[in-house]
Structures are given as C-alpha cells and as structure tokens.
Amino acid sequence: MSETALEVQDLTRTYGAGDNAVTALAGVDLAFRRGSFTAVMGPSGSGKSTFLSCAAGLDRPTGGRVLVGGTDVTDWDEERRTRLRRERIGFVFQGFHLLPYLSAAQNVALPSRLAGKRPDRERVRHLLDRVGLADRAHHLPGSLSGGQQQRVAIARALLSAPDVLLADEPTGALDSTTARQVLGLLRGSVVDLGQTVVMVTHDPVAASYAGEVVFLVDGRVAGRMAHPTADAVAGQMAHLDELVSA
C-alpha cells in the first residue's frame, strides 16, 4: 500500500479556448500522506473547487497526473472513475447531498448498494454510532437538522474506508456550534481511524482543525502552514498577495 493517499503532479485545468480561456489550475503539485488532515484554502477563483473535482475524477484535468493510493487514474474512463468514487473516495459536500427518500442508515449504506454489495448492517450501525446518530438511523433527512444531516454524510463517506475523504466546504451551511462537531468528527476519523482527509474551506476556524493548510492563489500553491491556528490562518489569508509575489 502506498504511503501517499492522494497525489497530483503538475495539475493544470483550463476552461474555454483562445482569448476566452480561463486557467483554473496552473500546475499544482501536492501529495497527501496517508492519515493526514489537510485544509486547502484560497480566495474565490483560486482553483480550490477545480482541484477537488479533478482529484475526485469528476473533472478531467487539461494536463498533469492524478494518483489515488499510488494508482494513476488520470486517463480512466467514466465507468472506472465512477467505481473509483464509489470505492476509494469518500465525499462530504457543503449541501449534505443525502437522498431525501432514504433513511439515515440507508443513506450511509448507499455506496455499498451501488457497488452491488449487500450492505454490512453492523458497520453501518457502528458508523452512525460513531457520529452520534445511532438513535436516528431510521429517520429521513427531512426530519434531521443540518448538523445531523452532515454527520450522516460523514458516516456515508467513511463506509468504504476510502483512500481519501474529500470535503468541500463541509461546514459552509452550518452554525458555529454544529460546525465544530462536524470538524471534530473529521479530525476524529484521522486520529482514530487513520483516515486521510482533504478539506476545501474558506473558514480559518475550520482550517485550524487540520494538521496542515495549503494556500492556493490563481491556480498555484502559494504557501503552506503546519499546525495552523485560526488566527494565524486568518492573518495569512489577509496577506496572500505577499505570498504570491514572494
């Protein structure tokens, strides 16, 4: 098993062509160690979302390579990339993305159903218990709060014990108290389960839960910060232009 859970090499992504071409990623090199928790930060338009889409196989990079668990998945076709998302990547989205007509337990079990496997009930129960929702297993998303829905989504993302869990602004739609619970769960999955988490966020407080912060500006890596605190991250965010010119 590779020590690097996710790696991108010289990743570029350009939208459009000719004069209208927009460069979202201009050569990004990043490697995420197994069991690390990394926050990717940057202003709007810095390429954060594009980076996540390319890493997840949702978007095809214009150039460069994407390696998941040491396997080069850049040129995989849609069918294989779908299986990749199902089996080796866990997703947590800002908007939760639960299926409204499936109960909490059924939502958690969904990736395994989609893979054509009989869901492991014991594991589903264990994961719901882990996110503190064992007693809500049979509730539909509509009767859960936003924080509870996001916790269901985290349990779902952990089901397949993926190579990497990608989180896209996971606390963007939550108040600060529930946001802290969700971030605590993400960090817990790293500390207790050895899960690899890559989280895109705007929020310095959220970033402070990570072990390292990577700053993206104009589609390039502009800097890094180990053992971040919310204040240090906020200070750095306010002076990103200096990182670029440096």
Binding site: T82, R85, R86, F91, F93, H97, L99, A115, R156
Partner: peptide
C-alpha cells in the same frame, strides 16, 4: 440535482 448527486456518490449512469 438529486440524480446528479447519485452520480457524485458513485452510481453509474446506468444505475
């Protein structure tokens, strides 16, 4: 939007 969500979670377009 909901069908797109299924795709993101790893459902094939056939599914």
């Amino acid at each position: 939007e909901e069908l797109l969500r299924l795709r993101l979670l790893g459902a094939t377009s056939r599914q």
